[in-house]
């Protein structure tokens, strides 16, 4: 564990808490993509199957359980409790355009052709693009609530911090996982446009709106 990985995990946790808080406090999931959230639940489910087979540490197990539980909690709030507020008209990104190619790629490019490893690879690839429906939704509506933009900033920062963690681990531990690194870089690049808008608008106290 190094400082980049720890702050990355904290940013990830913070993002999830921010999203749950937004939905709970406003009693609304308006502006949140249910498709991105469904894919995140799928990401955590397929990646953390190793909870059953491998024990790494109490920290690792606890975080995994929190991530899985919170992702299903978010789905419960979005699709059951506050279903009436779900903005499905703007959530039109086609999930199969991501899930199908990602599933194909995880069969073709992986570290080992075994069920658990293919599912892990699938989760890494899917996570890298799972935010696209959310970003697409913002581009359609042209704006995001400030709390939603904080959520996205924390969520994007998490993988960016993981990249620093991988650089650190490469130099100091000789650790290098090509699949995670490439997918993590793709994931971070997808946020760059959002990061720019967030820093130039939200940090100056304005609402996140897209240029016309």
């Amino acid at each position: 564990m190094n400082v980049f990985r720890l702050t990355g995990d904290i940013a990830h946790l913070l993002a999830i808490i921010l999203l749950l808080m937004k939905i709970w406090k406003t009693r609304s999931c308006a502006g949140v993509s249910g498709k991105s959230q469904m894919m995140f639940a799928l990401v955590f489910t397929t990646r953390y199957l190793d909870l059953i087979t491998n024990f790494i540490s109490l920290y690792n197990t606890t975080m995994k359980m929190i991530f899985i539980a919170s992702s299903y909690g978010t789905l419960y709030l979005m699709f059951l409790k506050f279903r009436a507020t779900y903005d499905s008209n703007h959530d039109t990104f086609r999930m199969e355009f991501l899930v199908v190619p990602v599933a194909g790629l995880s069969f073709l490019v992986n570290h080992d052709f075994s069920p658990l490893e293919i599912l892990w690879t699938f989760s890494i690839y899917l996570e890298s693009v799972a935010i696209l429906p959310q970003l697409f939704m913002i581009s359609k509506t042209g704006e995001a609530e400030t709390i939603t933009s904080h959520y996205l900033f924390a969520l994007g920062s998490y993988r960016a911090l993981y990249i620093l963690n991988w650089v650190y681990r490469f130099y100091f531990e000789g650790f290098f996982d090509l699949i995670a690194v490439v997918a993590g870089c793709v994931q971070t690049v997808l946020y760059c446009d959002f990061f720019y808008l967030y820093i130039t608008k939200v940090w100056k106290g304005k609402k996140l709106t897209l240029p016309a």
Partner: peptide
């Protein structure tokens, strides 16, 4: 060489 599962990150 046998594959060793070692995903210790989240």
């Amino acid at each position: 060489e046998e594959f060793e599962y070692d995903h210790d990150e989240l």
